[in-house]
Amino acid sequence: MQRVLVTGGAGYIGSHCCKALAAAGYEPVVFDNLSTGHRTFCRFGPLIPGDVRDADELERAFQSMAPVAVMHFAAQSLVGESTARPFDTYDVNVNGTLTLLRTMLNHNVRNIVFSSTCAVYGPADRLPIAETTSLNPISPYGRSKLMVEQIFDDFDAAYGIRSARLRYFNAGGADPSGLIGEWHEPETHLIPVVLDVAMGLRKALKVNGGAYPTSDGTAVRDYIHVDDLAEAHVAALRYLIDGDASVAVNVGTGVGSSVDEVVRAVERVTGRPVATQSGPPRQGDPAELVADPALAKSMFDWRATRDLDTIIADAWSWHQSLRRHETVHHKESV
């Protein structure tokens, strides 16, 4: 069985990709320092604790596991934190990737699937966003991801390391089995925050900005089910293993949903009301971000198939399980 080293594989998207890899006949090997990931998510292959900035730890992982390829999720991913602490963002995202690439070269591993972001585009000059859209990131996080994409181009030209860079839009949902799901501390993503309100764990959702030039005045985003996203990674891996050229592609649905539409969908799926309150728009927050996913269909024969209600239903099932676990753990700890 071919092994794939999955950096950051104990996190939200990484763990779902590990499950998809296992289902596709690969053995995922998680390499994660567990700073934001969860040991309980490492269910589909071995875990090697380690940091991508540590060359010795990476060297031992490659020596012991001999992976045929890498999926690279390990990163500092919060935009606000990247602005407040850019050193940490560049250290992990850029320095960590360079250390990983050096180890790949040492072991003649030439294929990598990279967790990139639509933040590399910055404020889009047209919608939906295609890969030909201007690259103008406005945060250290977005700039760090674009730097890594540029590094991949140079390493492809010089060393033959081929990469598939998947530019995410807004991942949501959870594995329907309930084994893994979205679990961030603190939680800042819209769908789990709205679910917290539906569960009565938050009083209301603060809607940041209500006067955008959209159908209902709230910001519009392209929400993709995390299992669709995981399947895109496996398709990208197969594309590289088949010998195809490096590529950067958007992974989204091509359909936008506003904050208000997400709230209504949560109320519809859960049967519970969601209180909202108005807040000021966040600085630099674009009104609308929607992917053009045509290139991913062309390159990988992949497209997203799960809709917003499915995303929310699976997230709701996981969210209830997670919150029950946290309540029990809290009671047992008191």
Rank of each mutant, 00 (worst) to 15 (best):
P67I: 13
L127V: 11
H330V: 02
V94E: 05
G172T: 10
Q2R: 04
T276E: 04
Q2G: 06
A119Q: 14
F155K: 08
T188G: 02
T40R: 13
L295K: 04
E332L: 15
A230R: 07
V249C: 12
R110Q: 15
G11Y: 01
C17H: 02
P293W: 00
M71A: 13
A119I: 08
A158Q: 11
D32L: 00
K331G: 03
S116H: 05
V247L: 15
A171S: 13
D285R: 10
I138C: 09
V255N: 11
D196V: 14
L98F: 08
A130S: 12
T310L: 12
F300T: 00
A119S: 13
A61N: 03
L135D: 04
Q150E: 09
H319I: 10
V207N: 04
F169L: 13
L322H: 15
D222V: 00
D175H: 13
P176Y: 01
A10L: 02
G142Q: 08
K203L: 11
G8N: 03
V29R: 00
G210A: 07
V148P: 08
I138W: 08
H72T: 08
E182H: 13
D222H: 07
C118F: 11
A174T: 11
R126S: 12
V4Q: 01
Y212E: 10
G8K: 00
S257Y: 12
F31T: 06
E288H: 02
T276P: 02
E149R: 09
K331F: 15
V251N: 00
L21E: 08
F155P: 10
V207R: 08
M299Q: 14
Q2T: 04
M71K: 02
G254V: 02
L289V: 10
S215K: 15
P137D: 05
L205H: 03
V226T: 06
V6F: 04
G210M: 12
S257L: 05
G160Y: 00
R167E: 10
T36K: 11
G178Y: 02
T97W: 08
L47F: 12
E131W: 05
H225G: 01
S134Y: 12
R143A: 03
I180W: 01
N111R: 00
